[in-house]
Each structure stands twice: as structure tokens, then as C-alpha cells.
Amino acid sequence: MRALAILLLTAAPAFAEGDLFIYTWGEYTPPDLVAKFEKEFGVKVHIDSYDSMETMIAKLRAGGAGYDIIVPGDATMQVLIAEGMVEKIDVFAMPNFANVDDKWREVYWDPKREYSAPWAWGSTAFAVDTAVVKGDYSSLAVLFAPADDVKGRINMLRDMNDVINMAERYLGIPRCSESPDEMKRVLELLETQKEWVKSYDSETKELLVSGEAVVSMSWNGYAMRARDEKPTIAYVYPKEGYTGWMDNVAVPKGAPHLDNAKAWVNFIMAPENAAMITNYARYSNGIKGSEAFVEPALAAAPEINPPADAPAPEFIPTCSPEATALIDKVWTKLMN
């Protein structure tokens, strides 16, 4: 028994040297990118996927998950750094960091880019079926003061933060508001709108393509997939503003294969590699020079190229406990 234990303990590192364990969203990591990395570095890559940031954090908290790479969103990244759950790997000093677009260098969630590299970014706004929605649809009024033929055919994302952020923009109230009066107005707006909402569902692509919804909150990548199947779908950058998000590559504390993890982080910041991410996941990456390697139809897609007059995406940190409590209260009342 003891001999077996010793054998296992000594054998483990030798076996593990050539591995990289990635924990990320499903259908997010291009197989050709993985194959290229495996060939170049002689490392075997293993991928596990999660369905929400909460799942990922819970697994990391439980400890011993054994992952080398995680791909957290911007607000989650900030939390992981604050809670000391990620390795400081000095991404800014890596050779390929020179490729990172200036606007993704000083970001609120990792101001010096000590912990994370950009993976992909996108936006959360809404999409319309232009066969039904006519005229000017550049305002959130399409969702909150809908025309008669849109009423009852609106889908909102099933995410309280995204829905409430959108309502706040329509009312001109700041994000993460801690004012009960402001949040009361948000609730009133959403309660009025609920009459016209068909569903609060995150399967936006399917709802738009099937015609169940003619206006739906959506992520830009999902709207593009919807347009592939139904050309009359258009993604809208509302003039009141919209949410931007970025997923980042980071290394959880105690990663068993730290060197391989660092190699991966540097690897994905090369333009031709970052382009593979965009080609596969259909979201923009944050790497200069990657455009040359992105499929032409994709590079020109309106979903990843906001028009010149569109406002800049707003990146939103995790709200304070007070603001979260109000958001929770609004959502609970809305669903009652």
C-alpha cells in the first residue's frame, strides 16, 4: 500500500509535465488552435467547460480542481484578483503582449495586465427582425415603448443584471445604482414592459430565427449566428448605450503546469492565433494585426464592427452588495 502511494507520488509529476488543463466556456476554444499548440510545445491539452461564472468560481473555491487556464469575464476577473485566486504571471512582460490593442491594456479589471490576457470581447444589446420592425430602431424604445406589432413578441435575456442595466440606460439611471427610488423606477418600467415580453430566455438566436421573437436582447455573436440563418435579423447598437464584456485568459492559483499555462497565454496573443479564436467563436479578439487572418466575411460583419456613430461599449464592474441587493429585489418583484 505504502509502496503504491510512493510510486504514485513520484510518478505524477513526470506524467504531468506535458499537460495543460483548460477550464472554459463550451465551444469557445478552436480545435485547430489546440492542435497547433500541442504540436509546437509537445503538450497535451485537456479542455473542460463550464456553463456559468458561478460554476467556475465555486469549483475554484472548492480547491484542487487542477486547472491551469481559466477564461473569466471582466467583472469576474476583478473579483478573482481581489480574492487572490489567480497567479500573477506578468502578462505585460510577455513577448506577444506587444500585439495587444492599446484599448485592452489598461482595463479596470486588471489595470496593469499582470494577471490576464484578452481572449475575446463582445457586446450585449439587442437584435430586431427588420422584416417586421420598420423605421428607426436605434433606440431602446423599441423594447420599452414597443410598436403594436412588436408587443408580445419581445424576448429579454434571462439575466437580471443585463435586463436591469438596459432599463437603467433607457431611464438615464447609472449602473449599479444604490438608490431605492431609482431602482423603483426601474421596476416600474420593467413591470410595464413585462406585459409585452414573451419570454426571458437566453436562447436568443433560436427565438429570432423561428420568429417567436421579433425583437430580442442578444449578444453580438449570437445575433450574427441568427443572421446567418435569417438574413433579415439586424444587431442594434442602441444610442442610449450598451454593455461590453471581455473574456480573459488567466491562471488559477496553484496551477499544476504553470510554465505550460504561461506558454498558452503568450501563444494566444499572436495575431494569427487570436484570429483563429475569432473565426471559431465569432467574437472579436483584442489583438492588433489579427484582422489579416480573420475570414473576410467575418471581418466585415456589422455585428463586430460598430458603426462610427455608435456609442462606446460600457464595461461594468461587479456591483456593490447594496446595489446587488436592490437588483435582486427588483428582479424578485418583477418575477412575482
Binding site: E54, D159, N161, K194, T324, D328, W331, T332, M335, N336
Partner: peptide, 21 residues
């Protein structure tokens, strides 16, 4: 239900996700 009404199970689920309570 299209996520339009909460039942107990959904309320519980919500506390472990977005509401973080």
C-alpha cells in the same frame, strides 16, 4: 414559463447565481 414567474426552485437557483446570497 419563459422565465416570467419564479417558483421556489428558481428562487433558490437565483440565490446561488446572480444574487450571490
Amino acid at each position: 414559463g419563459g422565465g416570467k414567474t419564479l417558483m421556489l426552485g428558481n428562487l433558490i437557483g437565483m440565490q446561488f447565481q446572480g444574487s450571490r446570497n
